[in-house]
Each structure stands twice: as C-alpha cells, then as structure tokens.
Amino acid sequence: MEANITINKLKARFAESIVDAHSYRGDDTAIVKKEELLDIFIFLRDDKELLYNFMMDLTVVDYLGKEPRFEVVYHLYSLAYNRRVRIKTRVSESECSVDSIVSIWPSANWFEREAFDLYGIVFKGHPNLSRILLYDSFQGHPLRKDYPIKKRQPQIGPNNN
C-alpha cells in the first residue's frame, strides 16, 4: 500500500527495532527502540524512495505513571514524495537520554534544547545542551506532569505561589 511504504520499508530493514506501528487518522507512526535511532534516521533521510529531508518537529510526551515514562516524538517530512511520518521512541525516567540527531538535521538543535529544558530529556552528543526558554536558575522541568502549574521560581520580586 502506497501510504504505508515508509512503515513497510522500515519494518523490512530494521525488523527487530520497530516496536510498534500504526496509521491512526492517516498519520504513519513507528515506535522504535532508542538504540538504533540514529541509523533509522539516516536511513529515512538518505533512502532513495523515502528522502525525509525535513525534521519538522521534535517534542516529548510525559506519560506519568507508565513505564517507560517518556516518549520522544519526531515528525519528519519528505518534500520529494510529499509524505509525513512520525517516529517515536520510549525513554524511561531512570535512563532519560537519547542520541542527539543534530548531526543529521541541524534544525534539531534548538528543538532538542527545548525538550531538555521543559522535560529534562538528555540528548547525548548535543553540541550545547542548555536551557533555552527558561533561565539557568530554574529548578525542575515545567512540562513534566508532576510539576505544579503555579510553582513559580522568580529571579526577582515576591514569590506569590
């Protein structure tokens, strides 16, 4: 089937790394093991029938209470074939790191910093993994589900929690 060519090719090439795949509402999604993430992304970018040249979005979802707790979500787009795919990888709270993909797509640089800032995921091999939206003295990661929405950490002024 044309729509699932990406998933089929991924399954054929990385059979044991693909944990799960679905196409809910037409969005092709593959959940992969984080160990082979870099190989999968290089394959997706360079394969002649895929050519996913855009790294559109990178984010994290916090499934608090599940194990593994986090899912790092990548949205890729192929200009040549006008196709989208979503790649997800699961990260546990105790070992909260994945490989950085800055070497594959430079656009991932800030997206990974943002994910580190707001969720605390460590991207191994990132050239400058530091806070981007918040300030350095901020403690914790505010988009984690266990961070209270009104827990303020002012740099100056009263702390009216």
């Binding site: 918040l134 505010p142 961070y147 209270p148 929405i149 009104k150 827990k151 303020r152 950490q153 002012p154 100056i156 002024g157 009263p158 009216n160």
Partner: peptide, 13 residues
C-alpha cells in the same frame, strides 16, 4: 497566564 512562567502584574516589581 496564571502559571509558572509569568509575573502576576508588574506592580509586584
């Protein structure tokens, strides 16, 4: 914006 990121009125400063 009553959340962790926003100052609740500049008259606190």
């Amino acid at each position: 914006y009553d959340n962790y990121a926003t100052v609740q009125g500049i008259d606190t400063l």
